[in-house]
């Protein structure tokens, strides 16, 4: 009796998980197939699902001089790296400081709370003032404008995430450093950072995803030269005709690095996504 019930459960489990996985994978496969399909396969009625011949034409075209994707790819890489470095560095310093301060002064808990709110207000509020600010600073269409925007969203997240990690450090560890005569800087780098490396990794991954994918604010301060990849993709939208090949190729290029991220850093990724939601 029991055996029958368990296998029913496993059958149901198999069906549900299988169906969910299929729902996730099919659109991705479809995108990839479209990016290696010949133009004529789109035009047949009904269109061919499986390419009659494999072509890497769209990728080649995108990476050619006229396609300019190399420039935008470079922009995205530069922005993302800068944003990760700055956010993680400044953010964890601030988180360390806040974690120490708020144990003594309640006022600093308020700062933490305000920083948390950055996560919850509409970024669309920022686009106009941000545009004007960058215009006045003569930074329109410069990578620096995008970097500042992304740091201002990413860094609060790092603070929020890292405070949890710093809070867990036992007081004794800190005190032993003090007794050895280490100043705060030395203690932070030699003692605190090594213990919180998993936290740093999580913060870096989350900031990278955020910056690589962000579209709204970047699109409002960028016109020609400083475009990042998501803005390039959105540009294909205005085209009315079927332009699926190139669009799929560029989308695949944008998606791939994040896929690799998700596959190889899953442990940290999950921790970053659920942090603040579920401790531990």
């Amino acid at each position: 009796m029991l055996k029958v019930r368990i296998s029913y459960f496993n059958l149901l489990r198999f069906l549900i998980v299988f169906f969910a996985v299929l729902t996730v994978l099919v659109p991705f496969c479809y995108l990839f197939l479209n990016s290696i399909k010949l133009e004529r396969d789109f035009r047949t009625i009904p269109p061919k699902l499986i390419p009659s011949e494999i072509t890497f034409e769209y990728y080649r075209e995108a990476f050619s001089k006229s396609g300019k994707i190399s420039n935008y790819l470079m922009n995205s890489v530069l922005v993302t790296s800068a944003v990760v470095l700055i956010s993680v560095f400044i953010g964890s310093l601030a988180a360390y400081s806040l974690s120490r301060f708020r144990k003594v002064y309640r006022f600093f808990s308020l700062i933490v709370y305000v920083i948390l709110l950055v996560r919850f207000y509409p970024k669309v509020v920022m686009i106009i003032p941000y545009f004007i600010l960058m215009k006045n600073l003569m930074l329109l269409d410069r990578l620096l404008a995008v970097i500042i925007a992304h740091v201002s969203i990413g860094m609060p997240f790092v603070v929020w995430l890292m405070i949890g990690f710093f809070d867990e450090i036992p007081k004794e560890l800190e005190e032993s450093g003090m007794i050895d005569g280490c100043g705060p800087w030395k203690r932070f780098i030699k003692i605190i950072l090594p213990v919180t490396l998993p936290g740093i990794a999580t913060a870096a991954i989350m900031t990278a995803i955020l910056s690589w994918n962000e579209f709204l604010i970047a699109s409002s301060v960028v016109s020609v030269n400083a475009k990042t990849l998501p803005i390039l993709i959105s540009g294909y939208i205005s085209d009315k005709g079927i332009n699926w090949g190139p669009m799929s190729a560029v989308s695949s290029v944008v998606i791939l690095p994040m896929f690799l991220f998700a596959l190889f850093t899953q442990k940290y990724l999950v921790r970053g996504l659920t942090f603040g939601a579920v401790k531990g």
């Binding site: 996730v24 690589w212 994918n213 998501p230 993709i233 959105s234 944008v254």
Partner: peptide, 8 residues
């Protein structure tokens, strides 16, 4: 799906 750009 969660890690790809919403634009993509």
């Amino acid at each position: 799906p969660m890690v790809i750009a919403p634009v993509a």
